[in-house]
């Protein structure tokens, strides 16, 4: 029945340094990072396609980008668990190969890809829309190939927005709970995320343990977002 400030630093440290806590934190931050990276790549492609190309169904797809924001996380969670379980639509396809997706860290990552998807697209879209056509025309007139224009002109212009979108997707994924716990299987030390560990500690009335895990999550998130923020302003300054 102790809260961190009552239990003293020793207790806080013993909770934080517990292998199970460390495993959960590693999984939450690691899977969130990989998921944000995947969304950075595909989000950039999707944003590019939605802004630059016209094709039937474009506006409908554009509207659906926000689905992860609108769909309650628990709904997404049970649906993803059903799809990637060994007897599910996609899970069954991979089961004969000996690859299990649900109830492993891979499943956690898939859920985090779902919740983080809109951030990168919605960060890059307005920048691409505002990009003046003259800039690309000037590059072409000066003899740059299309590839060179994309790498040297468009890339630097969208880079700060890309980092911003990555940061938002990452921050959201670190704290995500509802969409993950169903597909994760929640095996301690293997597929148990940090927010779930907070819930478990609370259910044991270990307020100190819960708060300690929460504090570490906040501290590490803050540090990483600070680094990403610096990176973003560094890129923005260089691009100018």
């Amino acid at each position: 029945m102790l809260r961190p400030w009552e239990a003293g630093l020793d207790h806080v440290w013993s909770v934080i340094s517990h292998p199970r806590t460390i495993a959960a934190l590693k999984l939450s931050f690691g899977a969130a990072f990989v998921a944000a990276l995947i969304n950075a790549i595909f989000g950039t492609i999707v944003a590019w396609v939605l802004v630059r190309y016209d094709f039937p169904g474009r506006r409908l797809l554009d509207a659906f980008v926000d689905l992860p924001f609108a769909l309650p996380t628990a709904v997404a969670g049970i649906s993803l668990a059903a799809i990637y379980a060994p007897n599910g639509l996609i899970g069954a396809a991979f089961a004969p190969l000996g690859l299990q997706i649900a109830y492993t860290p891979l499943g956690v990552m898939i859920a985090l890809v779902f919740v983080g998807f809109p951030f990168v697209v919605r960060s890059i879209q307005p920048v691409l829309e505002d990009l003046q056509v003259e800039v690309e025309e000037a590059a072409a007139t000066l003899g740059a190939t299309r590839l060179r224009t994309i790498v040297a002109v468009i890339g630097p212009a969208i880079a700060p927005a890309l980092v911003a979108g990555f940061s938002l997707a990452f921050a959201r994924a670190v704290g995500e709970y509802g969409s993950v716990i169903f597909i994760a299987g929640n095996l301690p030390n293997v597929s148990e995320i940090a927010p779930l560990l907070i819930v478990i500690r609370l259910e044991e009335f270990d307020y100190a343990g819960a708060a300690a895990v929460g504090l570490v999550m906040l501290a590490v998130s803050l540090l990483l977002l600070l680094v990403l923020n610096l990176l973003q302003s560094h890129i923005a300054r260089r691009g100018r």
């Binding site: 595909f42 492609i45 169904g57 797809l61 980008v65 689905l67 799809i83 996609i90 890809v113």
Partner: peptide, 13 residues
């Protein structure tokens, strides 16, 4: 790529 990714990640669930 975009349509396939959106279909797999968003529409399938």
């Amino acid at each position: 790529i975009s349509v396939a990714y959106l279909a797999l990640v968003l529409l399938l669930p």
